[in-house]
Design a protein around this nucleic acid. Structure first.
Lengths: 204, 204
DNA sequence: ACCCAATCCCAACCAATGGTAGGTATTGTC
DNA sequence: GACAATACCTACCATTGGTTGGGATTGGGT
């Protein structure tokens, strides 16, 4: 749809592209978002700024794709964990989300990156705008489904509006991460999130 | 403590300072955060960039003070409303927060500004870092107190951990605003927040 | 084997932005 | 009316994201 990037046919190019993404991910994870300039990324992979911009339309585009890649990576890992850990029960989005938060607690840089992109992507012009909006919708839909399932199982109050609860749960997740960034040592996102879930969904 | 700014004695200066703050507030509110440069602010008040920077140490400092001013303004207004509206009952922080969110829904630019500063101020070097951290602590303490009060009144579950609930409520508030920025027309922050409050605190 | 188009990548350059340095003009106080 | 502080500007700088035009490389087609 919006992929105006050339189709990149040479193997070398594809490899370099991945190298750039990996380097950017690492830089952001360890030095934060604001301290990672295009020049830094370029240096890390032995290119110039222009070289990096040959692969990504802009810095924002690069960052968006880093986030997207991380998202995919996490999704796969979490799905595997869930499947391996607790029998072969259907993946429950709420459980997955809880795991994801616990995982995030080990990578402050990524939390910062995510929060930042969410805020900046509010502008419809931002390259990540569609991605973030769609992500919200997707996650919300899955949570809503999870809520509904629990309702039918009797492990969640029957009078809940699944869509509304989904929005609230996402809010708790995002909001806790914001607070956590400011007081990493004093807050256990994971514990608070699980507690919130229990409070909202009602007793099992 | 960190007020290294000269003590500004002339009346003209103080007036200009306020003018700058007002102009910046308006610019941000209507054009968003990213589209408001120092030059824009300077133009709006008939100064040069350097002129503006005579009053504020940096752009970030200016923005921080805009946010702070808005905060104070809101606090006063909300307190008045609350007092005028519902008898002379003690100000309840949770009620105040609910009102604040409803008020925010009319000023998207400010929500964006707030979210952005919260994210950026994660860096301890950021001029707003202390302000945001203290704000979090203050609000959390007040919410916790409010929860405790409701518990003793029997309008909130007795088994709640006030401090934890405070963090969760703040998370809901912040998180809903993030989502709202992306889908202003589809989300009613105010309704969702009140619903979340009811779910979390338990039946009245 | 060689052509040639696509791809890769760079040096040079540009514009915008936040910020600094130093000086001049204004203000208000004693 | 001097004199100190304050207000404010011009000129300048560094950094950053981004563009441009061209040169080097790659690899499939013939």
């Amino acid at each position: 749809m919006s992929n105006a990037v050339p189709a990149r046919r040479y193997a070398k190019g594809e490899a370099k592209r991945r190298e750039i993404l990996a380097a950017a991910l690492q830089l952001i994870a360890e030095s934060g978002y604001r301290n990672s300039t295009l020049q830094d990324v370029a240096d890390a992979v032995g290119l110039t700024k222009a070289g990096v911009l040959h692969y990504f339309e802009s810095r924002e585009d690069l960052i968006t794709q880093v986030l997207q890649g991380r998202d995919d990576h996490d999704a796969v890992q979490l799905a595997q964990e869930a499947r391996a850990g607790a029998g072969d029960r259907e993946d429950d989005m709420l459980t997955l989300l809880s795991r994801a938060i616990r995982l995030n607690a080990s990578v402050p840089g990524m939390v910062q990156l995510y929060s930042r992109v969410v805020v900046e992507a509010e502008d419809p012009q931002h390259p990540a705008h569609d991605y973030i909006s769609e992500r919200y919708e997707l996650v919300a839909a899955r949570i809503a489904a999870s809520v509904q399932q629990r309702q039918s199982l009797g492990t969640a109050r029957a009078d809940l509006d699944p869509a509304q609860v989904a929005r609230i749960v996402i809010a708790v997740s995002d909001g806790l991460q914001l607070q956590w960034m400011h007081a990493r040592d004093d807050i256990d996102m994971s514990v608070d999130f699980d507690a919130a879930l229990t409070l909202i969904l009602g007793p099992a």
